[in-house]
Amino acid sequence: MSTQQPETQEDDESEGELETTSPAQQQRLEKKRQRAAAREQREAEAAERAAADENTVHLKVFRYDPEVEGKQEPRFDDFYVPFHKGMTVLDALMYARDNYDSSLTFRHSCRQAICGSDALFINGSQRLGCQTQVSDLDDPVRVEPLPHQEVVKDLVVDMEHFYDQMEAVEPYFQTDDLPDDELEEQHQTRENREKVKMSTRCIWCGACMSSCNIAAGDNQYLGPAALNKAYRFAMDEREGADMKQRRLEIIEQEHGVWRCQTQFSCTEVCPKDIPLTEHIQALKREAVKSNLKFW
């Protein structure tokens, strides 16, 4: 049960709402808060019982809402969730939301590590909530939003910057070299497909970008995911030499591949096991090779 114990200092109760809230809404908020307080007490008691029970998972979840009083100051909430074999962090979060606190907010959809919605910072590492077994983690399980991205609310971060970087590398196939027959495919060797295969697995979850402290310092750095996307196309032989040259020009720019300091943190957190650092290094070598031609 949620004990709602804030780890940071208690908020000043007199602290004002956001200026935009209407009186009606304020009243509503007030009522809800009172009810929440009563519920908290009930839940606190239940939580103590639950905490004594070994078969529960202790979640410490980051909470923040710019709009709701009491959540404007970031804090951690505790939830005690009944454990079952095979339970993932996402399962635990969903249980906590559906049973204890419906305002607990996080993105999730497919539950099978393909939609990339639920990259979270779990016990100090970027992981997909759905792909992480609770039993593999130390208790308590600390769940936070992805670092280095602006927090919208609770575990939800603003992904716009990540999407911008992804789209900055012209992430779409471009070729002038299509077969004459409209019903004929372009041929691609198995070796070439094998070469780009891992890079095509990216699910845009943003874990790599969040783990990269170069991306944290340099806002314009394209970042591992976007560079991997560039690799996916630059190495695909179907696009042809001219396009490859163009793609190398994109990744060669100041905030491109040269920023990578081969810390391997992106490679380590990638939930799809994409060798991101390897791909970035390969792009660096390609870029040097193509430049040496002109020297």
């Binding site: 060669e252 720019q253 100041e254 491109g256 040269w258 920023r259 660096k284």
Partner: peptide, 13 residues
């Protein structure tokens, strides 16, 4: 400015 960077960095790298 991404596309008009004055210095590519590749040479220094």
């Amino acid at each position: 400015e991404r596309y008009s960077s004055f210095e590519k960095g590749g040479r220094r790298w």
